[in-house]
Design a protein around this nucleic acid. Structure first.
Lengths: 207, 207
DNA sequence: TCAAAATATGACATGTAATTCATAAAGTCA
DNA sequence: TGACTTTATGAATTACATGTCATATTTTGA
């Protein structure tokens, strides 16, 4: 929208920057930070090596920008999905569905996402982690609030700490995404969010 | 036990190998594969660089040996915990408890474990993944069997596919371990396994 | 059209890390 | 002890990646 307002030069600059980021996403998600060289990104994006440094200070800066961009897209989609309804159960259903959709639409992101949220982030020395963690933490709070509200309204039983439930649901979705990533035909991400949610909703041993 | 039977030379060789592996674990778990040099490992383990290559073909081989050793220790401990009882609920409780204990006893392992099971394994080019995946897959089957048996005996309700439940419980434990790793005081791994298990056992919305 | 300004290029300087191997050191045993 | 075998060493080799910068190319606007 406002991109149109920017002078042509700037728009072009941003488009080029974006092209580099897209190329970098492909490569990093496939091979990991250390197994991709600036050469390689430059070549694939059809720029010269030196040109890359007009857009990003260095390799790490490029990587950081990429992860930030993706994590933004990701978290805002999920947050919206939760806010799209007033009903707690619907919120959770929307969330589970959205998580599947966002990932399905951008499979490359998954690898990067798992690499960043799970341990691998020590590939990059600099302080990328803290920023990602903060966003993730904020998001979990939002999700926890849904459980807390549901309990207040007596829609949910107090079977566990709301924050723990948020962590649980999130990790549950991740686990299903992971299965799907490994064996897409055998273990597709469930169409029906209740396949996942029932694990929380229904008691395994309770009457 | 049988180590005593081996000639002194061989025992010494194995001990040295072990020392290198221990040093490598410390370094890799802290900094990741690419940010640790053979120099560094050699120095810390008090060997010469060249000596490392008497024990391992190359850096990747060393890493692979390390991950395999750890993953063995890990999976056998968990499998035993499940087999230590005949009661399905106790099996699950033992498992949740064991997972916490194994990790607590060897925090360094966690990082390596998460790095390997979640996405980061593209740090290493070679086919490490498949082997790890196979073990992990076998373990999940064992866990799934517990749920399946519980259902057969009517101890568990059929709220979801047993394999899905296995994945769910495992990911749930991982999530708690992760919380603990980040903020040990705020989110300790629960002493009582039911804190985790109740999320499965008790229904959130069911009567 | 053309020269000045802006931008892009990629060969190169620099650094670092994996792996090798000629040599030194340690161990063996008659 | 001393000749011979085995093992350990670390300097040197090789390879490759980051980031720079003098130069070439493109754009601008008079």
């Amino acid at each position: 929208m406002e991109e149109k307002r920017l002078p042509r030069k700037e728009r072009e600059f941003l488009r080029h920057r974006q092209e580099i980021l897209e190329t970098a996403l492909e490569l990093f998600s496939e091979k990991g930070f250390h197994n991709v060289s600036m050469q390689e990104i430059a070549q694939k994006a059809e720029f010269a090596v030196g040109t890359m440094y007009k857009f990003f200070e260095n390799k790490e800066d490029l990587y950081k920008a990429l992860v930030m961009e993706q994590s933004d897209k990701f978290h805002s989609a999920l947050t919206e999905s939760i806010e799209a309804s007033d009903d707690e159960i619907e919120k959770l259903q929307n969330y589970v569905r959205a998580k599947g959709e966002v990932f399905a639409a951008n499979v490359q992101m998954i690898r990067l996402y798992f690499a960043e949220t799970r341990g691998a982030s020590f590939n990059v020395r600099a302080g990328l982690d803290p920023e990602i963690r903060k966003r993730y933490g904020r998001f979990l709070e939002t999700l926890a609030a849904v459980f807390a509200n549901g309990m207040k309204k007596k829609r949910f039983k107090k079977i566990a700490d709301p924050y723990h439930l948020a962590v649980a649901l999130d990790s549950l979705c991740n686990a299903f995404l992971f299965l799907w990533l490994e064996t897409p035909d055998q273990h597709p991400y469930p169409e029906d969010p209740d396949v996942i949610l029932n694990i929380l909703f229904k008691g395994l041993v309770d009457p």
